Deep mutational scan, measured.
Amino acid sequence: FLTKYFNKQPYPTRREIEKLAASLWLWKSDIASHFSNKRKK
């Protein structure tokens, strides 16, 4: 799911990160680090 979202929006806003974190029961920092790691590849 996160990879699909990343393909659409590689630079999510803070609000989008909060929404993703809430819906996936993850920490915002986990979401942010996932996106930054994907951008590095």
Rank of each mutant, 00 (worst) to 15 (best):
F1R: 00
F1Y: 06
L2T: 01
T3V: 02
T3H: 03
K4V: 00
Y5K: 06
Y5H: 15
F6G: 02
F6N: 01
N7I: 00
N7C: 02
N7F: 00
N7Y: 01
N7Q: 04
Q9E: 10
Q9V: 04
Q9H: 10
Q9S: 08
P10E: 15
P10G: 08
P10V: 13
P10Y: 07
P10T: 12
P10L: 07
Y11I: 13
Y11E: 12
Y11D: 10
Y11H: 14
Y11L: 12
Y11C: 14
P12G: 14
P12L: 05
T13V: 14
T13P: 12
T13W: 15
R14T: 10
E16T: 10
E16I: 12
E16L: 06
E16C: 14
E16F: 15
I17A: 08
I17G: 07
I17Y: 09
I17P: 04
E18K: 15
E18V: 02
E18D: 09
E18W: 03
K19M: 02
L20R: 08
L20Q: 02
A21L: 10
A21K: 14
A21C: 09
A22E: 07
A22Q: 13
A22W: 06
S23D: 12
L24E: 00
L24I: 13
L24A: 11
L24W: 08
W25M: 12
W25T: 14
W25L: 14
L26G: 14
L26V: 13
W27V: 10
W27R: 12
W27P: 03
W27Q: 02
W27Y: 05
K28H: 02
K28Y: 02
K28L: 15
D30L: 03
D30A: 05
D30P: 13
D30V: 04
D30C: 03
I31S: 07
S33F: 05
S33G: 11
H34K: 12
H34G: 11
H34F: 09
H34D: 03
F35H: 05
F35K: 06
S36N: 04
S36F: 10
S36G: 14
S36P: 10
N37C: 12
K38G: 09
K38V: 08
K38Q: 05
R39E: 05
R39S: 10
K40N: 02
K40A: 12
K40R: 07
K41S: 05
